[in-house]
Design a protein around this nucleic acid. Structure first.
Lengths: 379, 379
DNA sequence: ATTGTTAGTAAAGCTTACGAACAAACTCCG
DNA sequence: CGGAGTTTGTTCGTAAGCTTTACTAACAAT
């Protein structure tokens, strides 16, 4: 009496599932195996997935016909039995457009290969554009990237600030003046290419998971002009009941006041950590000790705000993304110390906090992951 | 190129899926429809699930053969066409054992019907038992409940305090002296009945979702001798990377010290909210104003701790479970006011906080939900 | 009585995955 | 060198699952 597909506890079923859906799943499973583990024979894939060689051969034939997989010739090493024919994702067949709308005053984008490597870049200054003008700049940026692509495009991925729903509608992005902007639909209409729009911090979290060997339960805190977070739970991004998960910039920290925020409250996380505020405070400081104290305070505030989240979600890992010169060092150290001091050591002793190694490209690469995941079921 | 079964974003596939799994899913879908919506004809179910009448008939025949569904006879109301044969879950066919190990100094249990109604109760004083003795008392309690059951048992559900993994091993429950206690396996070995052990707060959250019309993204905060939480995200309980999700009792609250906790830290959530502490503080208070202030303070502390969690997860609802005389009123009011003041009104303005209506039976009923969900895919 | 509608079933067909069996191609070892 | 054993990948036939099509049964409306 086995129910549902989730391991562990059963999910409440909500929609019918047909055998063809199961096939789609198994198809992705084959792609996933090749994507993650590299060159493999059909028999290897069968062993790793639990499917039979027959079924794998069938799926592989279909995928070869679609040019998603290629045969690489026979395996070299000498061993008994008929030599295996190696397969791999056809990594030379497609490219991906990744776009990052979260930087200050500039939209950035890149052409990436299926492994997430950046092949070409483009950017366009925002120059104060909002609303429809900002949308036009996104379109222009994507167009210039498509010109630079040298292979067919698997899809367009966009990491946008603000609240983004599952249909890629930017429900709210104050800085860009968007409210209910149907960006994903617009991209599909404009370019007739599969397009996916997702929140910037969620994209970053996915990038860190795919390319930065992050754990499956992690939180990525993105610090820039604003402060936001992306949450990965069991490897899946969390969207929240109103698609506003991770919007922690305006959560009040501590019980002792704090500076006034643009939102009207006092002591929001952003008042402690947004880079303009930090830069200003550091510029006003005269001694190294003062600067040190400012960064320590900021790190502690972040730790105070994150402690309940880390505890409630039992997170294994927190990753910071933002200007290294501000975050790495004193600030990060203060954050992890505060986090450890305010949570259960038994449960969270091996909690780790680190900077992302993906730098400024994290959102673009995360946008590429969204495309890979959405189009191939791979990540 | 549709991938995966999750709506919205694709999941990374991890295991093969066969047509028979799809059938299990659709089977649950039929049961779920009858469970949630009540009496229905085959044709009704077909319309609601999207499956064809043929497939529904086939599944129903199988379920009738297993006595999980019964035919109730023809629909009464007059309308054109052949009269429909109404079906329903065979609610008289099975009963469920639900056990709550989270109360102070006592284990409680009940025999429940498939609708979660309590048919009989039993309890056994803990009398200081820990370790194997405590386990023996669980077994004894279940045995006495099985004696009271009047129908075959669908399964045994247990809500245990502490950290419980997906195999029903209580990894850690300090008050019961359990460390790696394989309670679920023990119950199966002892009674040869499907058994499921889950964390008490998670069970409570599931009960609130199934019987207390809670939203799908909610947090249930359980306040008693300790403080813990159960999180439901898209209707699914969150377990966390080390199965310790919801363990917020020892998260430090605020930036202004606080009483010393049994864990060694100062200002843990439990030092503000655990019922023995609250009772003691209230007993020491002389005036009504003082008592009011104590409850206000406790509520505010809870709000301070929950605000980052509510913000990060974009929760729509927080439910409190525990002694009504302490929680309902001043404390709950202070909590929701604090929560609102410390989160984004745009996103969380319609956040609601309320007491559970399920009272002391919440964990037992949640344990029953776990059985229903695990055995039938229904909840 | 005729017409039209609804419920449920039967038959046939398609898709998907599986197991059995086999040919090809290799290594190993006497 | 040549047989034995191993491994790969394919072919063939089968079982399971859902769909479409077509049917019968049973009713209301006219």
């Amino acid at each position: 009496m086995s129910i549902g597909f989730a391991a562990g506890r059963a999910l409440r079923p909500t929609t019918k599932v047909l055998p063809e859906h199961a096939r789609g799943h198994n198809r992705s499973l084959v792609l996933q195996t090749l994507y993650a583990l590299g060159k493999r024979s059909r028999a290897d894939i069968a062993r790793e997935t639990g499917l039979t060689r027959v079924t794998v051969s069938d799926l592989v034939a279909e995928l070869i016909a679609e040019s998603l997989i290629i045969e690489l010739g026979q395996r070299e090493d000498a061993r008994p039995g008929k030599p295996a024919t190696l397969l791999d994702l056809n990594r030379e067949a497609f490219q991906i457009i990744g776009v990052d709308l979260s930087a200050y005053a500039i939209f950035r984008g890149a052409v990436l290969d299926l492994d997430g490597q950046i092949l070409a870049r483009a950017e366009i200054p925002l120059a104060g554009s909002t609303g429809a003008d900002a949308t036009a700049k996104v379109i222009a940026l994507v167009r210039s990237l498509l010109d630079q692509a040298t292979l067919p495009i698997l899809g367009i991925g966009v990491g946008s600030p603000g609240v983004v729903d599952l249909a890629g509608v930017v429900l709210s992005a104050p800085n860009l003046g968007w409210k209910g902007e149907e960006l994903q639909a617009r991209l599909v209409a404009e370019f007739a290419v599969p397009s996916l729009v997702i929140n910037d911090a969620n994209a970053a979290a996915l990038a860190e998971h795919s390319f930065g060997d992050a754990e499956s339960d992690m939180m990525l805190v993105k610090i820039g002009h604003g402060v936001g977070a992306g949450l990965l739970l069991s490897g899946t991004p969390l969207f929240g009941s109103r698609f506003a998960a991770g919007e922690i910039g305006h959560v009040v920290v501590g019980t002792d006041g704090g500076a006034e925020c643009a939102c009207g409250k006092h002591g929001c996380l952003e008042t402690w950590l947004a880079t303009p505020r930090l830069d200003a405070a550091l510029a006003a400081a005269t001694t190294e000790d003062e600067k040190h104290a400012i960064l320590r305070e900021a790190g502690q505030r972040l730790g105070i705000a994150l402690a309940p989240v880390v505890g409630a979600l039992d997170l294994a890992e927190v990753v910071l993304s933002g200007p290294t010169e501000l975050l790495d060092g004193t600030l990060a150290t203060a954050t992890i110390e505060t986090l450890r001091a305010r949570t259960m050591p038994e449960f969270h002793g091996n909690l780790s906090l680190r900077m992302t190694a993906l730098g400024e490209d994290i959102v673009m690469r995360g946008a590429a992951v969204v495309v890979l995941s959405g189009q191939l079921g791979v990540s």
